[in-house]
Amino acid sequence: MSTSIKPQPQGRVGWATWATFIIAALFVWSLWAIEFSPARMIQVPGQLAEQLSFFYPVDMAYGWDAVLPAIVESIQIAWMGTLIAAVLSLPLALLGARTLFPRVARFVKLISATARAFPEILLAIYFVPIVGLGPFAGALAIGISSVGMLTKLGSEVVESIDFGPVEAVEASGGSRWLALRYAVMPQVLPELAAHWLFRFELNIRASAVLGVVGAGGVGGVLLNTLRYGHLDKAAAVLILTIIVVLIIDMISGEIRHRIIRG
């Protein structure tokens, strides 16, 4: 026989089939549990279309007067939050590198993993009663919640460095401190800066929602416009947020690429 086709395995149900079946069952069960009946499902597109029709005409006067200042505040919250996180995470990233501090690293990593599980909005719930309603609470919440991720990414960067310069400094009698300053920092700083910028992009989105718990920014404005049914004003919030976030993403992304390429 010149051409032979491999026999397909028969009579065995593969794991993919099982997984699909289980997921489908979970899905249907979930729909049933939240009472998302077919009748309700048919309603939804109509409701969405009706609400969308109220978006027009967009109340841009409100956009310039009330929304833009709130977006600016969100940007300021994100900036200060990222700055707090960068300052706090720098020493932690060094301590969390297995190659430099084998004993402490495990502990630091555990803490940073726990910190990452916290959505910033839950932290804001605690900071609002402490420093009062407003953007300062938001900046603190964003800062603390970003430390976890920046520590993790940072220590991975530190672990990936070339160890030659470190050994060179130590071989010529330099202390551990001098090795960090002259051999480790110059290697890791560009990549760390890129991670900080990336986190800044994420924090813009995070700070936008903090207004929901009274921690400043554009989220509170959106919640109020929707609560009172001013959909034309809500549309202004959405349009301005999308434009500003797109612009910041573009600028920040461009800078990150330049930093990484050197």
């Binding site: 909005i121 989105r205 929901v212 919640l223 976030v245």
Partner: peptide
């Protein structure tokens, strides 16, 4: 991607 998850939640809560 520009809008955060809670924005979508607010919008859909207002709509449905």
């Amino acid at each position: 991607r520009t809008l955060p998850d809670l924005f979508w939640a607010m919008l859909f809560a207002a709509a449905v």
